[in-house]
């Protein structure tokens, strides 16, 4: 129905899953939230997702695990990592693996919008 890009949010934190889609809608995107990587992989959204907002640390499959899995499946979805672990050492590693950006929670809407615009230009 819509031509708006679909942004998928994968995060085990409920606050994020509830708040981010509304903001993404305000930005003008479609949004869907998933509580785990496994749930996202099993969903129909996989093929329609234009950009993935992905938590790093999750029980079971982690964000980087999902990143690898998508590479294996040749699913080229731009990934913006979001993490509450403010660890500068993690960032370059994730970017080297092909992530567009890695945002530390809490991030501003400007940072988020910039990251999404970069991701969607790819």
């Amino acid at each position: 129905m819509s031509t708006r890009p679909l942004i998928s949010v994968v995060d085990d934190d409920e606050s994020v899953r509830e708040s981010l889609p509304d903001l993404l809608n305000e930005f003008g995107f479609d949004a869907q939230a998933f509580s785990s990587a496994e749930e996202f992989l099993a969903s129909d959204s996989l093929s329609q997702t234009s950009c993935l907002l992905l938590d790093v640390a999750m029980p079971g499959m982690t964000g980087p695990d999902l990143q690898r899995e998508l590479t294996v499946r040749r699913q080229k979805i731009p990934i913006v990592f979001i993490t509450a672990h403010h660890d500068e050492a993690v960032r370059p590693h994730l970017l080297a693996q092909g992530a567009v950006e890695c945002l530390f929670k809490p991030f501003t809407e400007t940072d988020l919008l910039d990251a999404l615009n970069t991701a969607l230009r790819i």
Partner: peptide, 18 residues
Amino acid sequence: IAHEVNQPLSGIITNAST
């Protein structure tokens, strides 16, 4: 602790922006 606090803070800022 930082992780535990950053999660709700992130929610707060996102919600306030929205």
